[in-house]
């Protein structure tokens, strides 16, 4: 970090300018997998944000203690611990979310956003800035999931926020609100949108829209420079000589 940004800027950059999903193209697996319903998308967003926030704080606090050589395994241990803590809490208090997210809940461990932020930001910045960065990135991730899932749920199931009751039950069991049903679409849902092809399609269109917006503001397009943002980049032989994954020719 050459220039010091203000705390406010660290927070807001994750929302739009450096949105982890639409701009940095990180965490694509959970984005596609859990965006079939708004409730599970929000649940996943909150869980990942909590992990990102906590792991950023701890990694930043320990950045001078962790030896350079073993930093990646150390980060993985720290992140995996927080994921497990969240997993246990979700199982105990929001069991409906646990069954909705299934295997994708423990898979937060390998969400590139989290390891990516640890390596790119928390390992180089102070605790407060890292905490704010984690929170901003997490909320950006949640917002992206929310957008994706809104489109997919409304078109694909004809509902909005269906199943939200089970999430809200954490605060109070008396909440009866359980989302809206969209007339017409509910009887004739375009099921393809909640299936895998719909996921890829909506994501593609979202990236195209965000590219269009970025272009208008004179920002570069979102590209999958897989390797530059890949948390394993530093230990990857592929880019040792400054190439991108895709450009490497294997004999």
């Amino acid at each position: 970090m050459a220039e010091k940004k203000s705390i406010g800027k660290e927070f807001t950059k994750g929302l739009i300018a450096e949105n982890p999903v639409f701009r940095l193209v990180l965490g694509t697996c959970p984005t596609l997998a859990v965006s079939t319903s708004v409730s599970s998308a929000i649940g996943m967003g909150i869980a990942a944000t909590a992990v990102l926030f906590c792991s950023n704080i701890v990694i930043s606090a320990l950045r001078k203690v962790i030896p350079q050589k073993v930093r990646i395994p150390a980060y993985i241990v720290i992140i995996a611990s927080f994921v497990t803590i969240i997993q246990l809490l979700v199982k105990a208090f929001v069991p409906a979310l646990d069954s909705a997210l299934g295997v994708y809940l423990p898979l937060i461990v390998v969400n590139c956003i989290i390891l990516g932020r640890a390596e790119a930001f928390a390992s180089k910045n102070a605790v407060l800035a890292s905490a704010v960065d984690g929170l901003g990135m997490g909320i950006g991730f949640t917002a992206a999931l929310f957008l994706m899932s809104t489109v997919r749920e409304i078109l694909g199931s004809g509902t909005f926020l269906s199943g939200i009751k089970d999430l809200l039950a954490v605060f109070s069991g008396d909440i009866q609100f359980n989302g809206f049903t969209i007339p017409f679409l509910n009887e004739n849902p375009l099921t393809i949108f909640v299936l895998a092809p719909g996921g890829f399609f909506v994501f593609g269109i979202m990236i195209a829209l965000s590219n269009k917006l970025a272009e208008r503001n004179g920002k570069p397009k979102a590209e999958l420079n897989g390797c530059a943002s890949c948390p394993m980049a530093s230990s990857c032989a592929l880019i040792a000589d400054g190439k991108k994954c895709e450009e490497v020719d294997v004999k």
């Binding site: 203690v65 030896p67 073993v70 395994p73 150390a74 241990v77 611990s81 497990t84 803590i85 246990l88």
Partner: peptide, 15 residues
């Protein structure tokens, strides 16, 4: 080794 071990031990205790 020691620092990684300590991190693992603390993490496991927390879990």
């Amino acid at each position: 080794t020691v620092s990684l071990f300590v991190i693992c031990a603390v993490a496991t205790a927390l879990l």
